[in-house]
Design a protein around this nucleic acid. Sequence first.
DNA 1: TGTCTACATATTGAATACAAAAAATCTACG
DNA 2: CGTAGATTTTTTGTATTCAATATGTAGACA
Lengths: 252, 252
Amino acid sequence: MRAKTKAKSSKPNYTIREKAYQYIQSRIASGDLPSGGAISELLLAKELGSSRTPVREAISQLVSEGLLEQTPNRGTVVVQLTREDIVDLYELREALEVYVIAKVTREHLPVEDIKRLELLSNGILALVNELDATGEPYLNTEQMQRFITADRGFHTLLMAFSFNPRIRKVVDETRLLIRIFAMRRLGYGAEKLRKIHGQHAAIIAAIVSEDPALAVQRLAEHIQISRQERLDEFDRNRRASTIERSYSDLNL
Amino acid sequence: MRAKTKAKSSKPNYTIREKAYQYIQSRIASGDLPSGGAISELLLAKELGSSRTPVREAISQLVSEGLLEQTPNRGTVVVQLTREDIVDLYELREALEVYVIAKVTREHLPVEDIKRLELLSNGILALVNELDATGEPYLNTEQMQRFITADRGFHTLLMAFSFNPRIRKVVDETRLLIRIFAMRRLGYGAEKLRKIHGQHAAIIAAIVSEDPALAVQRLAEHIQISRQERLDEFDRNRRASTIERSYSDLNL
DNA sequence: TGTCTACATATTGAATACAAAAAATCTACG
DNA sequence: CGTAGATTTTTTGTATTCAATATGTAGACA
């Protein structure tokens, strides 16, 4: 097995630039800065109590990571994913995750690593039990947060086993974009959670039985299901906002 | 088939920042700024006749693209790929290219697109003929350039058929890094060219016969062979520079 | 001679100032 | 009224200045 990769990304970074980066990203993630909304360097600088310079640099970075979009001499806006963007992002994810799981499965993953995957997977099962116990139909916000952490952790850990920081970085950025812009997922019920847990468990089983083709097939399917959900959501939102717009058109 | 994607990346960009970006990148690509060498904002600004500001922004972008490496309050250096970096980069390429060729092959590529691939592939064959005709054992610089163009074009075109600009971007950046830092390939002879052409032709054949698995296998092998060459080259260089260093150590 | 501290120098990070371009507003004219 | 053009305002792009941090060096002292 490959040695643990050098930790070159250890940047405590007390720079204002980094603070600006965190600040802007969190405001995008929270939906505070809406998709398609304009970004004002001056305003952000004021809010941060800094000059425009570090804000500009943070914006540059966010542009290169795909969260913002810039047109010269015009300005910067929060990216607005199209339907095709979602498809493209999921393809990218699928290509890389599938590659990694094939590699990982071929290379005989240590038992303790399998255990860690199962732990994360069981976190989802725990949420199912909570729902069953309380009788609530859907996850509340805090539980939803735990679900996202567990689900994300599962995939992140799987990617970590590739020992390829570059693949990891691309997948992380891809997942970030999807999460921020194509995911307002609400109302996860016990049934859906059970399905997802089942998929994760099936993937782990395929890894344990050292069947790369099966692992690939199951992970690909898992991702494609997730993709379809995002697309359905996107279509629903678009239909909704189109209707909304029609109404406001009538008001003119 | 998917519609042609919107051309959002059309930036003529007369900004100094963009000039600085081009300038620095070309100096890295030419080997003028050596791997591991320090980057001076002030010096580059002077050379460009500009201030540090646009240079800084260009540097930021190059950092995010992986050509430069930055440590806060210390400075910026041209990235120096390790052996593992090369392995990682080739894995990334393989994951994405393999995914794309599978997709493309399944989707029945139009004849004219196949023709375009063949055209590029034949460009390599033409070089073989030139070598045979002139009796030269190896490609000269100009021919080498044409080979790189043809070889790169083949893969780029293949990726273009995916109609996924995000995958294309990642592959492009990956290939750029490999080309700049892990490729000082010289002395390509007729035999090597024939092999590469054969591999390309075999890949095209697999696409034509609409056999995704075969196409995948052949492309993967093609990439892995290239990877091995880079690694061998890397090891040779390292051995050479190690010996060199031993000598200079003796001189102390 | 070796090491530690103080000072000098260089370089990055950030703030401010200025210029140029685009957007918004206003005005004159049809 | 509406529109074309001019003017004002805003915003981006660039230059310059200032501050903080790190590096290099010289000299004092053990």
